[in-house]
Design a protein around this nucleic acid. Structure first.
Lengths: 343, 343
DNA sequence: AACGTCAACGCAAACGATTGCACGAAAAAA
DNA sequence: TTTTTTCGTGCAATCGTTTGCGTTGACGTT
């Protein structure tokens, strides 16, 4: 009686019929007279009847709700992904339950538990940096429970996943720097544990290699947290203490790129003439910086909408999980701005 | 049998007792022998029993889920708020269902409907810019349905809401500009329909007034969409065509502030010497700009956590909605950076 | 011996909707 | 007129859990 929500029984009582008749009438089942259907629908309308989704979930063991597990919401890329997910889900009549793991595996696991007990229909997950063990996912997948991984993809047989072409992004960014005449390109990499970081780094290496340049291992430095401060000190260290000084940075993330910009500025190096910089993710602020920051754009919204579409198709059995062997790779695009173009 | 989830019946069958006994044993009800309790818990453990939240929702007409309606997720401030909401909800054992209205009233309404049929326990809402009519909210509130409004607050008797001290933020920003010696301070305001825009503008007016300066109506210009481009052209127009040219801008939002910066730069005006600028929201990029942008920081995370706490307290009847007459106002803080401090 | 007490548990209804099956009446076929 | 078919509807079980009330048997009291 909470919100005064009318139930099927209310309609039934009002018309002096059984609830089964009402149920069938509302769904235009055959075997109900037009007359009755009309009356039922009329009363339903008048009582502002809305089916109780919870009762439906219980009956059907389906909730028309998908769960999203994401490391953190306050992150331009992730929020874009969420937006894409939400868009598709809403269009197809699904709810989205959101939890952030804050990069903690324990929270990841407890969120899964909580959502499962809510009869969620499927998961959309970007696991944490520290998730090395995927048992809590594979257990579900063995049951045929629909899961789609996005951005960060697991080493897991039969996992359906959507990722961005990190390799190509890295490759193009570094090629671009080389073409601009930069000779000593350093790489501020992301956490080595993540496939995306590895791929960006591979792109970096291959670009150098294919342009006949040597990879200087000293120039590849991990920035596990990805903050500006961290990158700043790493870049400073590199610029002050390395044997051959870098004249360009390819950062695995935009925040880190800003750290490198700061370091360059602090040392009086002019960007882009004496120092080229390219970031990754194309955060909103890239175009607002001075000089504006070149960056590899990731299609966040598309990643969200594609993953969601995939998941819903899996849930509704429009496609088979086993038919998707390889990760879906979305294209990246290098946006060239002022931080990397020599005048 | 989906996820192979064990039910109370499974436990009951295994032990040859009734499901009522199992239910009571699991909750340590009196009237169940210690022996039985032990056995039940043991089997529950072994079968990895998790209560079915959907069945619970149906029985109790409570879902331990709250609904969040937000204009758009991809927005630094809002994503911060979401983060705060999620944090509190998770800590108190609630799920968060998220929908974005994309500033469309229709979507706002349909989201409400959808969530209601999911037996949601309460709403956390930031309505759209175009929401002028609050019937769809007040109808629910009349039933005593828990709703907390955040950021944008409605003209509605008895609404519980949490906002930021926009007036103070505006007042301090403009006072600061005045103290820095700026004389002709223009205001790029937000959509006039929103209370927050009105309050920021009031702060602007009062600051001028209290410092003995005149308000030049020509200097107050609305930027309804709040994009950089829009602000750029408005600022250009002001700088090129107004009788007395502004020497400072107080923008109702950081994106607009960037637009003003661009306009100044385009006209060769040096910031902050010839032109002072202060924004609002303290988006991440503020500190990364050159010069760094002074801005009024809004406590997004706190707004989220406070609103959520309030909502959950309402839901759990720890507090009475009627006991909260006035909006809860969270403090803003002017972060002075380089864009407004004359050297 | 007859009765009351109490611990320990089961029955069944309820939450709201769906659905296989059965039933009665009317219409059609014989 | 009798039999069969068709149509429109209701009954009751089901999903998983909770909970008011009833039942059972053991034990204690007079």
């Amino acid at each position: 009686m909470k919100i005064g929500q009318a139930t099927i029984k209310d309609i039934a009582k009002e018309l002096g019929v059984s609830s089964s008749t009402v149920s069938r009438a509302l769904k235009d089942y055959p075997g109900i007279s037009e007359e009755t259907k009309r009356k039922v629908k009329e009363v339903a309308e008048r009582l502002n009847y809305r089916p109780n989704a919870v009762a439906l979930s219980l009956r059907k063991s389906r909730s028309f709700t998908i769960g999203v597990i994401i490391p953190e919401v306050v992150h331009f890329f992730f929020s874009t992904v969420i937006s894409g997910i939400e868009e598709v889900a809403q269009a197809r009549g699904y709810n989205v339950i959101l939890t952030q793991s804050n990069e903690s595996v324990d929270r990841e696991k407890s969120s899964i538990e909580a959502m499962l007990s809510n009869q969620i229909d499927g998961f959309l997950v970007c696991f944490t940096k520290e998730t090395k063990d995927f048992d809590h996912f594979s257990k579900l997948m063995d049951f045929g429970f629909p899961i789609v991984f996005f951005d960060r993809i697991p080493k897991l047989e039969g996992a359906v996943s959507v990722a961005v072409d990190d390799y190509k992004g890295g490759y193009e960014a570094v090629s671009h720097l080389i073409e601009q005449g930069f000779q000593n390109i350093a790489h501020l990499s992301g956490p080595k544990s993540l496939k995306i970081s590895q791929n960006r780094e591979r792109g970096y290496r291959d670009a150098l290699y294919n342009h006949g340049m040597q990879v200087n291992e000293e120039f590849i430095r991990e920035c596990p947290t990805g903050t500006t401060e961290e990158a700043f000190s790493v870049a400073m260290d590199l610029l002050e203490n390395s044997k051959s000084k870098p004249d360009a940075f390819f950062a695995s993330n935009d925040m880190a790129a800003v750290g490198a910009m700061r370091a360059a500025r602090k040392l009086g190096l002019r960007i882009p003439d004496e120092m080229g910089i390219v970031g990754f993710s194309n955060w909103q602020f890239c175009s607002m910086l001075e000089p504006s920051l070149s960056s590899v754009a990731q299609p966040g919204f598309k990643m969200g909408s594609e993953s969601a579409t995939l998941l819903l198709d899996l849930i509704e059995k429009k496609i088979e999980g086993s038919s998707i062997k390889d990760p879906i790779i979305l294209n990246t695009e290098l946006l060239v701005r002022n931080s990397s173009v020599r005048r």
